[in-house]
Simulated assay, not measured.
Amino acid sequence: MSAIGLYVPGTGPLYRVPAGAKLLGLLAVGVGLVAAADHRIAVGALAASLLLYPAVGLAPARAGAVLRALWPFLLAVALFQVLFGEWETAVRLCAQLAALVLFANVVTLTTRVREMLDLFERTARPLRHVGVNPDRVALVLALTVRSIPMVAAAWRMSQEGYRARGLSGRPHLLVVPVIVQLLRMADATGEALVARGIDEETRT
């Protein structure tokens, strides 16, 4: 199970909320946490984000996967703040970061990619008057979303090759194969866009 996922079909209450409302709610939570700057409120928000997963029909294990992916970064932040700041600040920052990532993950898991892209395209339409192409904005966002599983696939392929060669204890050897796989995927995506005339269409 990936830590940060894409849309997961479901029937929970949050699935029926429009993408714009969910993003505005996420923005409001983020602004509220930063403005409050209180470690107790941040811990409460973290607890609420964990309870939100089963409340909207998502497996709690998905929240656990997010925290497992975040813990090295959170540990580094906590150690730095404890050594050079205050423990309350360490708790606040770690709880804020974890809560916001968990909330954001809920939004992506309960919102169809097409709905999210349509929202950004509509938002960018007023910028057409200053030379911004909404279709190109939607295309860039679609490619960005598509890159998430591409990176995961490249990492899995590199790990399989790493194990097949009997290598161990040298994880840095995975970096170059991952980069090569991503470059190949990017070339294939670019060729597909050109073959379909999409790039030329977005220029007009």
Rank of each mutant, 00 (worst) to 15 (best):
A3I: 02
A3F: 04
I4F: 15
L6R: 09
Y7R: 02
P9H: 02
P9Y: 04
G12C: 03
G12P: 02
P13F: 13
K22T: 02
L24A: 14
A28P: 00
L33C: 06
V34E: 11
V34D: 09
A35Y: 11
A36M: 01
A37S: 09
A37K: 02
D38P: 04
D38N: 14
H39Y: 07
R40F: 11
R40Q: 12
I41E: 07
I41Y: 11
A42K: 03
A42T: 03
L46N: 07
A47G: 14
S49V: 03
S49H: 08
S49A: 15
L50I: 10
L50S: 03
L50H: 12
L52T: 08
P54T: 08
P54R: 04
A55W: 07
P60R: 14
A61I: 06
A63M: 10
G64H: 08
A65D: 12
V66N: 14
R68E: 12
W71V: 11
W71P: 13
L75W: 11
A76E: 09
F80M: 04
F84K: 06
E86T: 07
E86A: 13
E88H: 12
T89L: 06
T89K: 11
A90T: 02
R92W: 14
A95G: 10
A95W: 10
Q96A: 05
L97Q: 13
L97V: 15
A104V: 00
A104F: 08
A104L: 12
V106Q: 02
T108M: 10
T108C: 12
V113D: 15
R114Q: 15
E115Q: 11
E115P: 02
F120M: 13
T123I: 15
P126R: 02
L127D: 13
R128D: 10
R128L: 12
H129C: 08
V130S: 13
N133K: 10
D135H: 15
V137G: 04
V137N: 07
V137E: 08
A138C: 03
L141H: 08
L143N: 13
T144I: 00
V145K: 03
R146Q: 15
S147P: 05
S147I: 01
S147W: 00
I148T: 04
I148A: 14
A152K: 07
A153H: 09
A154L: 01
A154Q: 07
R156Y: 03
R156A: 05
R156I: 01
S158F: 00
E160N: 04
Y162C: 00
Y162N: 06
Y162M: 08
R163D: 05
R163K: 04
R165V: 01
G166D: 05
S168M: 04
G169W: 10
R170Y: 01
P171H: 07
P171D: 01
P171L: 02
L173N: 08
L174G: 12
V175E: 13
V175F: 11
V176D: 14
V176W: 06
P177T: 02
I179G: 05
L182Y: 00
R184I: 00
M185E: 15
A186F: 10
D187N: 08
D187Q: 12
T189E: 14
G190Y: 11
R196Q: 07
R196D: 09
I198Y: 05
D199R: 03
T202A: 08
R203W: 03
